[in-house]
Every structure is written in structure tokens, then in C-alpha cells.
Design a protein around this nucleic acid. Structure first.
Length: 840
DNA sequence: TAAAAATAGC
DNA sequence: AATCACTATTTTTA
């Protein structure tokens, strides 16, 4: 299992490393950076399609995920599950629950069909689980101190190469209603994920810098005795006393820090999408963007007490830690949004908005324009440092600003940024066991979590993921402490809302920075945050109810969703003032209804005489109805829709039992086995492809198990996997299977042996030919090897190989050299082949 | 009056 | 096998 992971993690980077080194200009850096990415991220980044830029030439334009996956499956499949397990056949919903802790390695959304071919690798994944856990929790943060992706601004150091896909999706927008197709959406989600990982790595790195002794040495003189004293109240004080002392201390420190620290650079901003390639190409970071890359520069900043406000917050964090306060470095991550609704650049209408916004923020962008000449300032940086992503990136306002502003304004630039911070600090109020924010530079507030969330209209700062890093490198998602409408608003922008396993993904991403256990404080905080979310007030507008995790409106119910009969509204809303009131229901009162067939596929059966909760009309019919403009004819109790039922109208399906060793079958001669509960009484499921043969050999009655359908295009093909036999024959059949497996293995070995022989024959024959040719050329009596001896050898081997050839595929007899041997011509004799030969 | 929210469209 | 998602326009509210 270890091998599997190592392999997956190691293979790709090795190859990329090789190719990067072909570019001398970047090689040193790149090589370093390769090792900069912690192991745990390598998989993620590979999964997320992030690779170093320099490999782009070799990269195939189209990436075949499925293919890759299959490789993995093949690899995993080499370790077959020892025994068939019931888990083989669990419907996805159930599995979700029980696998709460089983975070598997893949970051893909594999939508598992109810019955599964995929179980092969699901299984192996689960087996590898502890291993993975270990890998995750053994991360030694100090060891990784210098090992992270370097990120400049909000710009990942590793790049996304999506040019091929970008172009195709950008140039054609046909359907107005669906400008974003699924592929495009997926792509954006991937980018979002990648961006998140990079941002996390970035903040983690800065957080480590906060512990740097040199940095702290530079900062220590700033602290007065009084500050330190108040920040560390004696434990004999009351809770309030201690909290007050801490607050007063913070007040002192904040004022001092605010006064001493000069903001000379622009900090992190929200990453935005470019609308066209041109915009992206023309994009440059503002001149005064933070250019801090190395720890030494951070130490410099600590000495000079100047830099971006982000660095300011980081230094402030370091300062508090120096003073003995338990302080978290908090960052509101600003990843690219995955929804296309975000602000763009360039659109004619948006120009207006931009201008008005510009006025609002002051003349902040004017100087940007003066920068065309200033690119050389960044010339020493690789281009990717200057850009967010090569193809997906931030916006740039200067284009929209008319000429006059193009003058250089040399003087003391007041940098206008979002009035809300991206970085701040949380300190631990030990008395109350509560983390409290403090932000000396931007909002100049402390103890006021509500003050830090920017309004939705802030284009430069969007609060979506707030992550706090503790001194020991542990990260916590504390978003809920700061946003006022997590369920209604913030969640929509997060990965959880767009991926079915988004929560798991995010948890896993953070696990890279977890301390393997949960402290009491963790628990308290988790409760606190959970309470904050549950206490969130009911939305006041209709839109926020859509996909709300707690509430639901009837108007937003999906086609096959239905309210439980006794659902009682928990409130009302109306769209505007003069609109009818709508009842607000609990999401928990919403049920999914399914047709008879769907339930059957989940191993359940609708009870007879149940009244359908709903009839759903097909899309085509709906269309017809629309055009005919005639009301659809509903007869009493009958409609042209499909009747659907809720779960409680069904019961577990019981297949007809096995009687006298006879297995009941459906009309195709199979037995439907979508879930384990569908195994008939008195029967046993043997999930092995050899089952049918074995049962046949045993001469017992059996039924192949129809475990699901595979949909390719429009028609589904049945997936048969394993057989059902009567319980009394189980042992016999299994024994036969084992036997068959042995046989098969034996045959496989033989095949390989033959293959090896064939290779040798070819090899020796070539040698012989060569020898014959050269025998006349060189001096006649000087022979390195005896021709007779070799002749004998070739004949011997050749005969043997020919024999087997004939029995095998009939071809390749005689002395024709068969270059078309299926297992690859040439003389690549790998271990397998040689091994096969040696054994024989 | 501007910003936010609802709605219409295909 | 199914499926709303996205924009522009109108309406409402602070």
C-alpha cells in the first residue's frame, strides 16, 4: 500500500523535474520548488491539474482523466480483496454516512452508481486508509519549515495550464442560457480548489515565519514591560479580569503598532477572472504590490516595519507571539471564484461600475497606469510571479481609466485598498477559552468579529474561507465566526456548495495542517462555530432560500422533491412587500421521491396500494403541453406523469427465496442484485467473475448477479458481476474458484514463460544471423563464440518456443522473425519476462 | 437615487 | 437519466 502512494506521489514530479531542467533559466528554482511542495500536496496538485509551467510543451492537449483513473484501478486491482464483502454493494447514500472518516485519496467526484463496478478500487482505497491517515498526521511542521509552495501575492507558484481548454470555451458562447457548460464549470472548480491549496500553503509559510527568532528579535524592542504584563495576566484574576487585561494590552500594542508600521505596498486582493486572453496578457500587477518572497525579506520588513498590510498583520502576529500571547495568523483566502458570476474586467457595462467603485476607493488605480515602464521592476521575476494564472487571473483597472490619470504621481502614495483586511490575528482569551480577533492596521479593532466581513459589493475582498494558523502550524477554518450569513450567502461561494464531497475535500485540505487529535479548546471552538451557524437568522429574501441547508421553499423544490405530509412551516417570507406570503419549511421536511423502478434499483419496493405523492411529467410532454396550450388531461387518479413515492411508502425488497438449491431468476436469466439486501433468502452472493464457471463446474444452479448498469451515451448495458448460489453450495463453489484462480495464475506464468522464450529465440536468432554475416568479414579463424554451440542453443530454444506458439496462436512458426509479437517487439526484456524464463 | 432583489426569458 | 443556470430587465427598498 505504501508503494502505491509513493508511486503516485513520486512518478509525476520526477518526470516534470526532468523536463524542467531542460530549461536552464528556471531550472534551479523549479527544482527547488519541486521539493518545496509537501508530499501531501503533491497528489492534490497533480489531481488538481497543476503542473509546472515548463512542461507545457510535452503535455498532451487533452487530458484524459478516465484513462488515468483506469490505470489506478488496474494498479489497485492487483491486490484483490480477500473476501467479498457486503460493502461491495452499498448504495451511495448509506455509504456516505458510514464512511464519514474514510477520506479517500481521490479528489474527483466519482458519482458512484448504485451498484458498482468501481468497488474494486473503492475497496483498495479503504484498505489504504490508515496509511493515508498516518501520512497526513505525521506531517512535521518544523521539518517542512522551508518546504512549501512559494506564493506571491495571491498567485500560486505552480501554474495551471489550461490554455487548450480555455480557448475552446472562450471563443464559442452559443447558448445564452448556458454560457457555462459543465466542462467549463468543472474547470473552474478545479482552479478554485488548486488556488485554495496554494493559498493555504502560502499562509502556512507566512505563519511559520512569524515564529522566526530573528523576526521576533527585531520586534521585541517594540514591546514595553507594561504591554507584556497586560497581555499575560496572572491566572489568579477572574475570567473578566484576565480578558480585560488582555484587551488593554492589545489596545496598547495595537496603537503602537499602527503608529510604527508603514504600509508601503499593496496586499493581497481577491483574484478575479479575466474575460479574454488579451486582458490577461496585458495584465500586470500594480507596481506597489507586495513583492516579498523570501524569509530574509520578511526579516527585513520586521526590521524596517514597513511593507504591505498583510505583512503588517503577520509581523503583528509575530509580535504578539513574542509577547507570549497565543496568537493565530488569520487569513481570509481570496481564491478565484468558481461561479462565473463574479466580477470581470472589460465588459462595457461593468466599466461604469468600476469607475464608480474607483471613486469610492479613491484614486487608487491611477498610479497603476504609470507603471507600464515599471515592468522591469518585476523583470527579474519569472512571469508567473507577475500574473495570477496564465489564463485565469485578476482584473486590472487601468484600462478603463482615461488618459489624464496616466501621469506619474511620485509622491507619498496613500494606498487605498479594501477597507477590510485580508490578514488579521486572533488571540486566545484564556479565561473564556475563546479566540478573539484583533486587527490593528485596517479596521483598528479588536474583539469585534463582526467588523471584519466586507460587504458583498467589495470587489477586492471577498470573505469565503477564513483560516487561522496557530503557532504550531495547525490550521482552523473559522469562517463562521466572521460571516453573518454563512448558510445563506457564504456557503454558496464555497466548495461545499458545488461538490458533493466538497466538505470532505476541504476537511482533507486542512488536514494537512491538523494536529492529529482534538483538544478541548478545539471542541469548544467547534461548538461555538456550529452554534453561530445554527443561530443564523432566517433569510429575508427569496433568493437566499434557494439551496439553503436549513430552510426550503416550496417554489424551490426540485422536480422529484416533495414535502412530508405533516410538514409545518417554520416561518414565512414574501417576495417584496406586496407579494403573497410564502411558507418556509425545514429542509429536513423535504423528501426525495422516486419512481417504482428507481426504488427497486435501491433494493426497495413500493408497498401495494400506496398513493403516489406526486406525478412527474417528462420534459418532452411538458413541452408538448406548452405548445398545445391545452390543459393536460387529468383523469381521476391517472395522469400522464410518472408516479413517484417517498421512502416511507416503500419497504425492503425481498427476493423470492432459494428453494432446494434452485435460484430464482429474472426473465434474462439473471438475478437483480443492486444492493446486498437483494440477495434472496437461502442464497449467497459470490462476487467473483469466476463464479459462473465455478458454479457450472460444480453443477449447481446459479444466477449471474446483475449489479447495475453502465451508461455510455443513451443506452445502458447491464453489469454482471459474480453469481448467486444456494448457501449450501457456497463452500464448494469457492473452493472451485480458488482452484480456477490457481490454474489461471499457472497459465499466466506459462504464458509469460513462453513469451520469454520467444524473446530469447528472437534474440539468439538475431545473434546467429549477425554472426553469420560477420563470420566472412573478420579473420576467418578468429571466432569469439563457437557457432556450433550457438546453433545448438538456438535450435533448442526455438523448438520449444515454436511448440508453444503453435499451441497458442498458431502464428510465428518456422524461422520467420515475428516482429509483430503482441507483447512488444524489440529486446526489452524486463524482469517479468526474465523471471518467467528463469523459473522455468 | 442607488443598490438589492425579483422576474422574465427559451 | 435528467437538468436549471445565467443575463438583462423590472421592481422594490433604504
Amino acid at each position: 500500500m505504501t508503494g502505491r502512494k509513493r508511486k503516485a506521489a513520486g512518478d509525476r514530479p520526477a518526470s516534470t523535474k526532468a523536463s524542467t531542467s531542460s530549461r536552464p533559466s528556471r531550472s534551479t528554482r523549479s527544482n527547488n520548488r519541486q521539493s518545496d511542495v509537501p508530499d501531501i500536496y503533491r497528489d492534490m496538485l497533480v489531481e488538481a491539474d497543476v503542473r509546472p509551467m515548463s512542461t507545457s510543451e510535452e503535455r498532451p492537449t487533452k487530458r484524459k482523466r478516465p484513462g488515468q483513473r483506469r490505470d489506478q484501478v488496474a494498479q489497485y486491482a492487483q491486490t484483490p480483496p480477500a473476501k467479498p464483502r457486503d460493502r461491495d454493494l452499498v448504495c451511495p447514500e448509506e455509504r456516505e454516512d458510514e464512511d464519514e472518516s474514510a477520506d479517500d485519496l481521490d479528489f474527483e467526484d466519482v458519482a458512484l452508481p448504485p451498484a458498482t463496478v468501481q468497488t474494486v478500487y473503492r475497496d483498495s482505497d479503504e484498505e489504504g486508509e490508515e496509511e493515508d491517515e498516518e501520512v497526513f498526521e505525521d506531517v512535521d511542521f518544523s521539518a517542512h519549515a522551508s518546504a512549501t509552495a512559494t506564493v506571491q501575492d495571491n498567485l500560486p507558484d505552480l501554474e495551471l495550464d489550461l490554455s487548450a481548454r480555455t480557448k475552446s470555451t472562450h471563443t464559442k458562447v452559443i447558448d445564452r442560457r448556458k454560457p457555462i457548460n459543465k466542462v467549463e464549470k468543472d474547470r473552474r472548480v478545479e482552479i478554485h480548489k488548486t488556488h485554495l491549496l496554494c493559498l493555504l500553503a502560502h499562509v502556512a509559510r507566512r505563519n511559520r515565519w512569524c515564529n522566526d527568532p530573528q523576526v521576533q528579535d527585531h520586534l521585541r524592542p517594540l514591546l514595553t514591560q507594561k504591554m507584556v504584563k497586560q497581555l499575560n495576566p496572572p491566572s489568579h484574576l477572574t475570567q473578566f479580569g484576565r480578558a480585560n487585561s488582555l484587551k488593554e494590552g492589545l489596545n496598547l500594542v495595537n496603537n503602537m503598532f499602527k503608529a510604527r508600521y508603514r504600509i508601503t505596498e499593496r496586499g493581497m486582493r481577491r483574484a478575479l477572472w479575466a474575460e479574454t486572453e488579451e486582458h490577461l496578457r496585458d495584465y500586470d500587477l500594480p507596481k506597489d504590490s507586495e513583492a516579498l518572497l523570501e524569509k530574509s525579506e520578511f526579516q527585513e520588513a520586521a526590521k524596517s516595519l514597513s511593507g504591505s498590510r498583510d505583512v503588517g498583520a503577520q509581523l503583528y502576529c509575530a509580535l504578539l507571539r513574542t509577547a507570549g500571547v497565543e496568537a493565530r495568523l488569520v487569513c481570509s483566502l481570496q481564491p478565484l471564484s468558481f461561479s462565473s458570476a463574479g466580477p470581470y474586467m472589460g465588459a462595457s457595462q461593468k466599466n461604469k461600475q468600476k469607475l464608480s467603485l474607483e471613486e469610492k476607493y479613491g484614486q487608487l488605480y491611477k498610479r497603476d497606469d504609470s507603471l507600464e515602464a515599471s515592468t522591469e521592476m518585476y523583470a527579474h521575476l519569472p512571469p508567473r510571479r507577475r500574473l495570477g494564472h496564465p489564463n485565469a487571473a485578476a482584473f486590472r483597472l487601468p484600462e478603463a481609466i482615461p488618459g489624464p490619470s496616466r501621469q506619474v504621481v511620485p509622491t507619498p502614495k496613500k494606498i487605498r485598498e479594501s477597507p477590510y483586511p485580508v490578514y488579521w490575528v486572533e488571540v486566545l482569551d484564556e479565561g473564556h477559552q475563546k479566540w478573539q480577533p484583533t486587527d490593528p492596521l485596517v479596521t483598528e479593532s479588536y474583539w469585534k468579529p463582526q467588523k471584519l466581513e466586507p460587504p458583498a459589493s467589495d470587489r477586492e475582498n471577498c470573505m469565503t474561507y477564513v483560516v487561522g494558523f496557530e503557532e504550531d502550524g495547525v490550521a482552523k477554518d473559522v469562517t463562521q465566526r466572521y460571516v453573518k450569513a454563512y448558510n445563506a450567502k457564504t456557503r454558496r461561494m464555497r466548495i461545499e456548495s458545488v461538490l458533493s464531497n466538497g466538505e470532505r475535500w476541504w476537511r482533507r485540505a486542512l488536514r494537512a495542517y491538523s494536529r492529529g487529535y482534538r483538544s478541548d479548546l478545539d471542541q469548544i471552538e467547534a461548538n461555538e462555530l456550529a452554534a453561530l451557524t445554527t443561530r443564523e437568522p432566517m433569510p429575508r429574501n427569496i433568493a437566499d432560500f434557494k439551496d439553503h441547508p436549513i430552510y426550503a421553499l416550496e417554489r424551490h423544490l426540485r422536480r422529484h422533491e416533495v414535502l412530508v405530509p405533516n410538514a409545518s412551516p417554520s416561518g414565512t417570507v414574501s417576495a417584496g412587500s406586496k407579494a403573497p406570503l410564502e411558507k418556509v419549511y425545514r429542509r429536513g421536511d423535504v423528501r426525495i421521491a422516486r419512481s417504482r423502478e428507481k426504488w427497486y434499483r435501491l433494493g426497495r419496493e413500493v408497498r401495494p396500494d400506496e398513493i403516489p405523492v406526486k406525478f412527474i411529467t417528462k420534459a418532452s410532454q411538458l413541452h408538448e403541453d406548452l405548445f398545445s396550450e391545452e390543459p393536460p388531461e387529468f383523469e381521476e387518479g391517472e395522469t400522464n406523469g410518472t408516479p413517484i413515492y417517498t421512502m416511507d411508502q416503500t419497504e425492503v425488497y425481498k427476493a423470492p427465496p432459494v428453494v432446494n438449491g434452485k435460484v430464482p431468476k429474472n426473465r434474462y436469466g439473471n438475478l437483480d442484485l443492486y444492493v446486498p439486501s437483494m440477495v434472496p433468502e437461502g442464497g449467497v452472493y459470490i462476487s467473483d467473475d469466476l463464479g459462473a464457471r465455478a458454479a457450472f463446474i460444480c453443477g449447481v444452479d446459479y444466477a449471474p448477479a446483475l449489479t447495475g448498469f453502465q451508461f455510455s451515451g443513451r443506452k445502458g448495458t447491464a453489469v454482471l458481476r459474480g453469481v448467486i448460489v444456494a448457501a449450501e453450495y457456497e463452500e464448494a463453489v469457492r473452493a472451485v474458484i480458488e482452484d480456477l484462480q490457481d490454474q489461471e495464475a499457472e497459465m499466466e506464468r506459462e504464458r509469460k514463460g513462453r513469451q520469454a522464450l520467444r524473446m530469447w529465440r528472437l534474440f539468439l536468432m538475431n545473434l546467429r544471423i549477425r554472426q553469420r554475416i560477420w563470420s566472412g568479414v573478420d579473420s576467418e579463424d578468429e571466432e569469439v563464440e563457437s557457432p556450433d554451440h550457438m546453433q545448438a542453443e538456438v535450435d533448442e530454444v526455438g523448438d520449444e518456443a515454436n511448440e508453444s506458439d503453435q499451441s497458442d496462436d498458431g502464428g510465428g512458426g518456422g524461422f520467420e522473425i515475428d516482429y509483430d509479437a503482441d507483447d512488444g517487439g524489440g529486446f526489452e526484456i524486463n524482469d517479468d519476462y526474465a523471471g518467467g524464463f528463469m523459473i522455468d
